[in-house]
Amino acid sequence: MDRHATGHRGGDAPHATVLRTVGSDIALLCRQVESIRTDEGVPRDVRERLAMIDNELSRIARLTGSAAVAPPVPRLPDDAESAHRLAGHLTEREWQCLELLVRGLNTRAMARALSVSVTTVRTHVQSLLAKLGVNSRLQAVALTVRTGLLDQPLRRGG
């Protein structure tokens, strides 16, 4: 049978096999990294490096598009100390945006409260999400409430 008659290129099957194998390997690495990262005896700096490795593995898994690996669920920082350290990089304006997010304000209301444009608020919010290592406003609020970020007395820029 002519390989073109089936509608498949000759290299598709080996390519798919490679992707499945790579996906399985990545899934195994993700599980191993997560297992080590969550061990209480692992020093904090090693846990942080493992978290970065885990994020990179997740990115690679998404790039392979392999059905063998579902991208891991984004993880919030696992302890208050880590969250407070990340929050130490927020500017005063980002702190203000975080406070307003926790109060439940939407972008327009935040812009009015801060006397800035909606675009400026979006920029501050995206920056604070990146600095906190979360993917959504909801995750930022959950992290803030769970770890008591707004209870800390000293803030950068303030």
Rank of each mutant, 00 (worst) to 15 (best):
D2L: 06
D2P: 15
A5C: 05
A5Q: 03
T6R: 07
H8M: 15
G11N: 13
D12V: 15
D12F: 11
A16C: 07
T17I: 13
V18W: 13
V18Q: 13
L19F: 09
L19A: 09
L19I: 11
R20Q: 11
T21M: 05
S24M: 07
D25K: 12
D25W: 06
L28C: 10
L28N: 10
L29Y: 06
C30D: 08
C30F: 01
R31K: 15
R31V: 15
Q32D: 13
Q32S: 14
V33Q: 00
V33E: 01
S35H: 14
T38Q: 13
T38S: 14
T38K: 12
D39V: 08
E40M: 09
V42H: 10
P43N: 03
R44M: 09
R47Q: 13
E48V: 14
E48P: 09
E48K: 10
R49L: 05
A51W: 03
A51C: 02
N55G: 15
L57A: 04
S58D: 15
I60V: 13
A61R: 00
T64N: 05
S66D: 07
A67P: 12
A68C: 08
A68Q: 09
P71L: 03
P72N: 01
V73Q: 05
V73T: 07
V73M: 04
P74N: 03
R75I: 09
L76M: 11
L76K: 05
P77T: 10
D79L: 02
A80N: 03
A80S: 13
E81T: 06
S82L: 10
H84V: 09
H84W: 06
H84N: 02
R85P: 06
L86V: 12
L86A: 15
G88D: 11
G88E: 06
H89R: 14
L90S: 00
T91N: 07
R93P: 00
Q96T: 14
C97H: 06
C97Y: 01
C97Q: 03
L98V: 03
L101A: 02
L105F: 14
N106K: 06
N106A: 07
T107V: 15
T107G: 03
R108I: 09
R108L: 11
R108Y: 06
A109R: 04
A109S: 12
M110W: 02
M110C: 09
A111G: 00
A113L: 07
A113I: 04
S115T: 15
S115A: 15
T119H: 14
T119C: 12
T119D: 13
V121G: 03
V121P: 00
V121L: 04
R122G: 11
T123P: 00
Q126C: 10
S127V: 06
L128P: 02
L129P: 00
K131R: 13
L132G: 07
V134Q: 00
R137P: 02
L138P: 02
L138N: 11
L138T: 14
L143F: 06
R146T: 12
T147G: 05
G148Q: 05
L149R: 00
L150N: 05
D151N: 15
D151P: 09
R155A: 00
G158S: 07
